[in-house]
Design a protein around this nucleic acid. Structure first.
Lengths: 257, 257
DNA sequence: CGAGTTCTTGAGCCTTTTCAACCCGGGTGG
DNA sequence: CCACCCGGGTTGAAAAGGCTCAAGAACTCG
């Protein structure tokens, strides 16, 4: 069960062959990517897609490998082709705090633009593959391709909005609400990518979930157990089944008290 | 005590007179603005500054007025010339959560880019003045002026980074740490603008502070009182003096336990 | 000057954390 | 091949931090 495959997408594939896909294994064609409707390439025509192709290079990462670290010089942003990442920040006291989990089609690294240095670490939580988009070139290209510019701005703005909903979660929800929201959000993003929305493997530990949600791992574990007992979800370690999505949603709408 | 005045800035003022500043009171010249070193105009040369001038229009707001509301069509972003704003979101349950406080030189409205609708409300907390920058035109102009494009991207990225540090605050600090961090952050931003970093008026209520920091207003009040008793700050309602900034900082670095 | 906010402070309660013990599963090495 | 080890997960009991509720004080604004 993979991403919405090409049948849904405009048939640009015939014209693609002027790009030698095989010659350099690191080369990748946005025009052929089945994620292009999720990614920066949305709305580009064939011609512009090829220009984007020219600056994108691919990189594979093993589970546990870091794509970039806090403090690294900022050189590129990254689109996830396959796999799963977390971003985190080491606080002054040395605790890590997870700031996000990212999956296919999402963009990593935009935090680095502000100071020419990355402010967080990005780590692959499973074997993954990213498209490297050198920032200088992307900036230049987006000056000449209006829809690329617009798309890029939308991605940055979406990141801002995403961060704000996390702020709301952290600022106003109680533990079980946070966890319900987290599961529903994951489920929704899986669906968007054509995977099952009702069962999936968590790629992160309870501790990482807790860090992301501002909770301790024990609290996460307890909430999972409680939801399990109530028949809302099935839990076997990292394997999760959503048994009653409406029940989870009800936890959210209900005022904390 | 106003913003760092023009002595620090390049003397572009002589050439500015081709723009009739007086003719239309709503017209405003970035080239003459003493905030231009903080704002989108950073790094533009005279020529480009004038192009930016052409698209910027000014608007005044009284205390309590809203600049835009959640759901409004997104048409422009706004640079604050003078005054003080909050942004907030109404959650489904009808509670408002404050997502930020903004002051002179900061940009409002970038959340709207992602969906062509604003996702939060922006409200003036004192009489204020903003520069309206119609987004379509700004986008177009930033395709032709590289340093404007770069500056704009940096502002968006800075917003992402800012949101992430708030996430860390909300996710890993205890009440007193949050409040110490909040005061130090305000103080720092006042200093950047040439105001006193050690005494200022809070423009927001305890409830708004609490909402922003994920705390109840009583908790905010208690922390203020405690800091006061410890000689860290002076508090008289909204008038705050920072008496021992290092003492406040020490609260942060100290691991929660 | 009075009404309505906003702020402060106290007491008790509730949620989440802390600390600790234990379990489970998968690898490793004897 | 089994014993052991170790990281990750679960569960319980006690402690703590922040919240709720409530009353009263201080300030603001018409």
């Amino acid at each position: 069960m993979t991403i919405n495959s090409q049948d849904r997408l405009p048939s640009v594939d015939q014209k693609v062959n002027n790009i030698p896909l095989t010659a350099n294994s690191m080369r990748v064609a946005c025009s052929q990517c089945n994620l292009r409707e999720l990614c920066l390439a949305v709305g580009l025509d064939d011609n512009d897609l090829h220009k984007l192709d020219d600056l994108v290079v691919k990189r594979k990462l093993k589970r546990g490998q870091q794509l970039y670290r806090a403090g690294d010089a900022f050189e590129a942003i990254y689109a996830i082709r396959t796999g799963f990442f977390k971003t985190d920040i080491l606080t002054e006291e040395g605790l890590e705090q997870v700031t996000g989990f990212q999956m296919a089609g999402e963009i990593l690294g935009m935090d680095g633009i502000s100071n020419d240095r990355h402010v967080c670490n990005a780590t692959a939580l499973e074997d993954s593959e990213v498209c490297i988009m050198p920032y200088d070139e992307l900036e230049e290209l987006s000056r000449s391709i209006k829809s690329l510019q617009q798309q890029f701005h939308k991605f940055m703005s979406r990141e801002i909005v995403r961060d704000q909903s996390l702020m709301i979660l952290l600022g106003s929800m109680r533990a079980e609400e946070r966890i319900a929201a987290f599961l529903l959000n994951l489920s929704q993003r899986m669906r968007l990518r054509g995977y099952s929305a009702s069962e999936f493997h968590l790629r992160m530990t309870r501790e990482e979930i807790g860090s992301y949600l501002g909770l301790k791992l024990e609290t996460v574990s307890r909430a999972f157990s409680k939801f399990h007992d109530e028949g809302l979800i099935g839990v076997q370690q990292k394997y999760i089944r959503i048994l009653n999505a409406d029940g989870l949603k009800a936890l959210l709408n209900h005022a904390p008290n």
